[in-house]
Amino acid sequence: MRKSAITMLLVAGIVAIVGVALVVDSHRTTDGERFVGTDSAATSQIERDNPDYEPWFSSIYAPTSGEVESGLFALQAALGGLVLGYCIGALRGRRRHDPAPAVTPAPAPDHA
């Protein structure tokens, strides 16, 4: 029971950090886009301070619409989540099948 209480507290902490940001923002009266990404904020800062700077290379492929872009980001998160879930599930299955696997003989120390 104590274990699940810690889990709940950790989840609550994450939700609170994001939630506070959203609530604080809903009381702001700024115009324009909210929650601009810091990456693009830095790019605009460079453009503002160095109007002469010309990006000398542009992306080979850039999503032409915000919708497609957010879809690709969702795809990245989905692929990562899929692999993460598979790995954890497979480890759980390994434990169920073989709770204490015999450790294979240690090879020579090789790590850097």
Binding site: A21, V24, D25, G80, L84, A90
Partner: peptide
């Protein structure tokens, strides 16, 4: 499997922009 989980964790997290109290994400 743990190696896969570590890589996948980075893959997921770097796709998700979270809002911060500063008003940017």
């Amino acid at each position: 499997l743990l190696l896969g989980a570590s890589g996948a964790f980075t893959f997921v997290l770097s796709a998700i922009k979270l809002p911060s109290v500063t008003g940017s994400s």
